[in-house]
Amino acid sequence: MNKRDAFAQKVPSLGNMVDLPVENIMAPVLKRAWMKKFLYPMILSGCLVALWQWCVNFFQLPGTVMPGPLSVVRALRTNFGNIILPDLLFTLKIIAAGYAISILTGFLLAALCSQSKWLSRSIAPIAVMFMVMPTIILIPIFMVFLGFSPIVRVIVVSLQCAPIIMLNTLAGFTAMEPSHLEMLSAHGCSKWQIFTKYTFFNAMPRIFTGLKLGCIISIIAALGSDFAMGKTGLGYRIKISSSMVALDMVFATIIVAALLGIIMFEAVSFIEKRVIVWR
């Protein structure tokens, strides 16, 4: 609505003419954008699923080797409510807690590090270390102290997710253009004014990069820690089903985990588009 008004203002002489046709012109374009985003990937996935089912039928693969999509859907339908949903909720809680803690600590550490080069130089390598470490090798360390408590998983998710949020936020805070700083200095801005009116907004795109990456990492870490410990969680369900050769169940759980990841990522992207309106 804003853009249309802006366009009408840019071409004042066309102001009245622009009013009517715009919607008609824009409608197919919008439809096409929707198609590009959803329809084409869905067609492709549909074809692949059909091919998958055909292969299973044609080669007469047993369910213990390769379940067909139909049996996966059947497994999903019969087991979602009583088995997969509790696991999903459990993992979701771990992800939510770990992600929230990571956002808080990531921002806090980035704010601290932006104030001192010395501090950021000493923290950065440690942050990178936790980020690149495989989840599975972190788990045993904390299990020594805390046993099978779910807190272990929250800690591991935070340890892996916070660094990426921190490093991206820090990059945003420090990526200031010298010429803009001159402009701010010419206005005699205080440090606090520079932060609230310039640095914070300037860092926004990078902060969201960190949040999106962190969202992915937290899912990976949560599923990974499910694998390594405990008797609940989506990762555990995949592990246990595969050891029981219930491959239809494995695939069903993987689909749920994938959907969870896509929905979380899209949610963060949606918020990003709402916040960064100036791009």
Binding site: M183, A186, G188, Y198, N202, R279
Partner: peptide
């Protein structure tokens, strides 16, 4: 520089230095 000392001056730079988010 303080806001008080700078309010008597206006400055235009080579590049416009507008803030994208405003």
């Amino acid at each position: 520089n303080t806001p008080a000392s700078q309010s008597c001056f206006g400055m235009v730079f080579q590049k416009d230095q507008l803030m994208d988010w405003r």
